[in-house]
Design a protein around this nucleic acid. Structure first.
Lengths: 142, 142
DNA sequence: CACGTTAATGCAATCTTGTTGCATATAATC
DNA sequence: GATTATATGCAACAAGATTGCATTAACGTG
């Protein structure tokens, strides 16, 4: 039901290139939102240009395949959009204060808040910070 | 009950300087979170150094007088902390997609979401995007 | 399968936001 | 008014992201 990366790329009318394939596969396998830096490090053996990665990531967001989140350190992080998600106008993330990793909270339902008169919401994002399971274990183990 | 800027600054054991007074007054009168850029523009006649503004804003955050938010454009925005707010471990913001302004949604109550096993939340932030009242009016007027 | 077209890429330069080090100025105290 | 620690101003730096432009390569066509 969720076709392979190459097919998905072609379905968007875009060319299938090594960079796009690699980034798409990487994000598919990631359990958290990755920054440009993360992606660069993970794909370092492919020797893809920094700028190309930026452009691939931008393209992913523009074509709706991925989300872009800004973390507290003001860097962009990218996570694959759930292919059959409710057209993502809401998204929740968790950022661990210890290790800095960002996780997607896919199954959190966000309540639409009441807005001042005249305001209309298009999307709602929830960002939670705290301690992730791994870091919590470390602390507890002390 | 909420004393004047100079007194508030002194109460923190800090010196009362033109830059601090000006920034504090500006934020007090602002109905939305201001970026460093916003502040610089608003106080341009005072000819305060860029770095000084950064330091004043940092100082405001450190001393608990203001909050720092990161918006989707990866710039920091600052808003005065409500002096008797529920010690801000949750905060909601609205960002207008048309004019780019960021508003604080002070009276929105954020529900603590369910987290994966082992995760613990320390703070929760809600960010809503859409159209603010003013921009909505413009669109409608067309 | 060679060819041509056009989208992608690579590289260098640039921009934006924010930070740091250090000499100088100034708010507060006496 | 003199003293002193705190703030400021300036210049340099740093990291993340963007832009312009020449070159490469994906893919439809013959």
């Amino acid at each position: 039901m969720n076709s392979d990366p190459a097919t998905r790329i072609r379905a968007l009318g875009a060319r299938v290139t090594p960079a796009r394939l690699a980034v798409l596969r990487l994000l598919e396998g990631a359990d958290r939102a990755l920054s440009h830096h993360d992606v660069e490090a993970a794909l370092s053996d492919l020797d893809i240009d920094r700028v190309t990665l930026y452009r691939v990531l931008d393209w992913l967001v523009e074509s709706g395949l991925a989300h872009r989140v800004t973390d507290a350190q003001r860097v962009f992080r990218f996570s694959l959009a759930a292919p059959n998600a409710p057209q993502h106008d809401q998204h929740a993330h968790f950022r661990c204060e210890d290790c800095g990793k960002v996780f997607c909270l896919d199954d959190v339902q966000i309540a639409q808040p009441a807005l001042p008169k005249g305001f209309s919401a298009k999307s709602v994002g929830l960002s939670v910070t705290g301690q992730c399971a791994q870091c919590d274990r470390h602390t507890a183990a002390k």
